[in-house]
Amino acid sequence: MRTRTRTTGAIALAATAALALSACSSGGESGGGESGDDSITIGIKYDQPGLGFMEGDTPSGFDVDVATYVAEKLGYSADQIEWKEAPSAQRETLLSTNQVDMIFATYSITDERRESVSFAGPYFVAGQDLLVAADNTDITGPEDLEGKNLCSVTGSTSAQRIKDDYAAGVNLLEQPGYAECVTALVAGSVDAVTTDDIILAALGAQPANQGKVKVVGNPFSEEKYGVGLPPESDQCETVNEALQAMIDDGSWEASIQKHTEGTGYTPSADNPPTFDPCQ
């Protein structure tokens, strides 16, 4: 969407020659997306296996699959996507300063965020849930955590919400990241891990954890993951059309299943997200 410009004499000369050739031509193809731009810059998480994860120069995960599908519907091939890390605390800045064209990064739509950026979607509706050992039959919801050990990430409100609203006697353990929480769960140091259900499922589907953990499947909140767009963007309707196409052709559900396999997490295309009105 944003082309890169250079001002060297050689490139200026080449551009002049290209224009001359174009004037003699009967037509031609654009160099990229719908507006003829040569690339699109998309923000993702780099540290969420199964959702947005960067290994070397190779991104992977559900968010990456959705972003790639949307970009291709907008006219950009996979090799025209420039990936940029979008940590939670930097997402609004990246969009408002036009450092990225879009963000797919478990980016919950809220009224507060709408004051500074635009959104398309949501492309997924998550809910806070619990991850427990695969053979655990005692924990079926947050009320069952009384006296149990619960892990979440430092600074997250997820675990505190359970302590405040569901199980005052739960013992909270904080770790730097959710991967460390799942490691503690597999080792038996904690009884459960809590955050959004699809994040838990994606972590549980990692090779080291497969078959050892499961998502309880009793969500008790709602988080609508939207496509972050720059303020005043006119891309909302176009992005929503691409998202609908992904849902309709089965790619959306196939990607979720691929990245959460073996965790008991089975959201269905029979109940896809409903898009918010574009603003």
Rank of each mutant, 00 (worst) to 15 (best):
A254R: 07
V66P: 00
P122M: 07
A187R: 04
Y166M: 10
G204E: 06
L173K: 13
A71Q: 08
G121K: 03
D101V: 06
V66G: 01
T41I: 11
Y123T: 04
Y107E: 08
M246S: 04
L13T: 13
S189G: 08
E241A: 15
V100K: 01
A192D: 02
I199L: 12
Q279P: 15
K214P: 00
E223S: 14
S108C: 02
P142A: 15
P219A: 11
D248E: 13
T194F: 00
A23R: 14
P277F: 08
E180K: 09
T93W: 14
V70Y: 05
L145C: 07
Y265K: 09
G43L: 10
M1I: 11
G52I: 05
A269I: 06
L200V: 05
A86Q: 09
R4I: 15
Q244D: 11
Y76Q: 08
G56M: 02
E232F: 00
G177P: 00
G28S: 13
Q48C: 03
L95K: 01
R91T: 05
G217S: 10
Y225S: 03
L203N: 05
P59L: 11
Q48Y: 09
K212N: 12
E29Y: 08
C181D: 02
S156C: 03
P272N: 06
P230T: 04
T266S: 11
G226R: 07
A187V: 03
D249L: 03
E72L: 06
W252S: 01
A179R: 11
S156Q: 03
A17T: 15
L19S: 12
G9H: 14
T157L: 13
A184N: 03
Y107C: 06
I81H: 01
L203E: 05
Q244P: 01
G147A: 07
K224R: 15
N218C: 04
N218I: 02
C236L: 02
S88H: 09
H259M: 10
S35N: 15
